[in-house]
Design a protein around this nucleic acid. Structure first.
Lengths: 141, 141
DNA sequence: GCGCAGATGCAGGTGACTTGCATCTAAAGA
DNA sequence: TCTTTAGATGCAAGTCACCTGCATCTGCGC
């Protein structure tokens, strides 16, 4: 059985061709990808279907979803050790739009406002990545 | 001179009627408001103009801007002590959509990826606010 | 192989936000 | 106070991410 098929079946999802391709694409990158980025690599898949596939993968806990400072959702493979999904800082390069996971920097504990409850946490930092720093002004510091 | 006029002039902006009203509206709430929420209180102001006013206020450092988990920007008055704008955790109620600033919880230091630089940080937590938690179990006021 | 719940594709829609351009006005100088 | 003008505003139109409804298709249990 194809590994992505097993992953999907284990998560309680049907292993359709579209889901297997999307899962493989996201996993092979290791960095959060936008809907558009994934779609550009998967010609032939309906955009709406891709939205639904990403939604099902996220609800099944196979990927986590991060909202960039640019207003676009990004999807990232969920690491093996199943902790809180996406429980780390995400770095978004505001020049090239690439996002990366700072998995070594876990999110701090947050105290909810009185009487409230916290269900999701999302810490995104924006800046310039090494590639864009080097390409533009040669200043990486 | 009207206080909002002075604030705008001090920030290097023209004190137009629209800007004064928007600034007063945001300041009077003390919590991040969406474009739609501000627009609903300011009938007669063109939506596009409101976008531009919010943009100018943000660039002048008079408000800070937070991206909610719902994909909508929210604008919040900048506190007197001019530190890093919006340098605290923001709480978004996923039930009623209200956002509040957890000003007593500053953002932790984040180490950028090798060779990269961080310009902006945004930590949003989603959950249920006290009002919505209470509404479910009997006390809605 | 069969049946069906769930997945997919297509058409159309929503809402946040942007752009271009003509008109108006706050603010500075005469 | 009047004039000038750079910058602000209003309107029309457009872009983009994402959603909804519905008919058709297909993975998977039987």
């Amino acid at each position: 059985m194809d590994p992505s098929t097993k992953t999907l079946r284990d998560a309680g999802l049907r292993a359709t061709a579209g889901r297997r391709t999307v899962l493989t694409t996201i996993a092979s990158r290791g960095a959060p990808l936008t809907h558009a980025e994934i779609a550009s690599e998967l010609t032939g898949l309906d955009p709406v279907t891709l939205y639904r596939i990403l939604d099902s993968l996220e609800r099944a806990g196979l990927v986590h979803r991060v909202h960039g400072l640019d207003g676009v959702w990004r999807y990232c493979p969920q690491p093996e050790r199943r902790g809180c999904p996406g429980n780390h800082v995400h770095f978004l390069c505001t020049t090239c739009g690439a996002m990366s996971c700072l998995v070594d920097q876990p999110l701090p504990r947050v105290t909810p406002p009185p009487g409230g409850r916290i269900d999701a946490r999302q810490f995104v930092v924006g800046g310039t990545c090494a590639r864009c720093s080097g390409a533009g002004v040669g200043d990486a510091g």
